[in-house]
Amino acid sequence: MSTGLTRVWERLPLKKQAAQSGIRVFSQQQPEIEDEEEFRVLNLRTVKQQFQRRREVRRDPVTPPRTNRMAVDQDWTAAWPAPRSFHPASVPLPLRQGFTERGAAAPSKFANAELMKIPNFLHLTPPAIRQQCEAIKKFCSPWPKGLETEAKWQRHFPVEVITTDYLQSLPTIRNLEARRVTISLKLSDLKFDAHARDKFLRLVGDRYNKDTDTVTFVTDRCPLRKQNYDYAMYLLTACYHESFVTEPWEASKSEADMEVYLFERNQSKIAAEGILNWSAKEGDNKISPPPAYAQCVEQLINEGENEYNLAKYKEEVKKMLNV
């Protein structure tokens, strides 16, 4: 079938050529006849000759579109290697683009500005992507084993640093927003004592998220990303080390300044000890109230009196006094 078609195609231009050559033979004969019959005019006044032949504009032959010569199984990635505006002579697809009234065909791909406007992905065909990815795969490295889940990688790499890159179509690659650095880590990954933890939370303020137990530092005051990162790490270090400093005036904290009730420094401990050591003599080891009792008293006062806390308090008191 295909061979038959090609034969027809070959025949057609041949026929045309033959027809053209016949005409040419005929037209060559004609001027001779005209020359004989031409009548010479007596030119008294030197009037410009009216029958001046118009100069033929010589046009260079326009080559047919490249798509005619393209093989069916050509390497398309070589024909269209890089991003480029659409060119109809290079794309062997019968594309049409444009809105028309009902019934009319959309404008064809030749001299169609709409197709030139829209960004095309002709250089990113699936084979091209595969080919390029295979070429750049040697620069990639696999994710290390043993860090598959989030829990695992958070055990070894608790600090998260978030940075952002911006890419826009501008003559400059700088973007002011790119300087911003966010550092976050879980508070449980840092080692604290009770006083240091309290002070650290006071220092960081609302940068601590109670629900997720994370501390987040966002820095953007320096012009460069590196500087902001260093500054965020400095903040973290400074807060951590500062939280272990105990100022001399902290010892003078009175009971009225306490935010929470502590069993250790309150009257109830002395009272409980008094009851437990009722019959003890001087020099004997003092019996201190059990930690479970201390905890339940703290809970009762800090959380308020509810049914559960009261019941637990009752249990503990009974247990302590061996009732």
């Binding site: 505006s85 500005a113 030139m116 406007k117 179509s169 501008l170 003559p171 400059t172």
Partner: peptide, 17 residues
């Protein structure tokens, strides 16, 4: 046609008929 100006990264591509 209209002159079509496309800016990609830092390059400018101009298309026209």
């Amino acid at each position: 046609s209209e002159v079509i100006i496309k800016r990609q990264h830092n390059t400018i591509r101009i298309a026209a008929l």
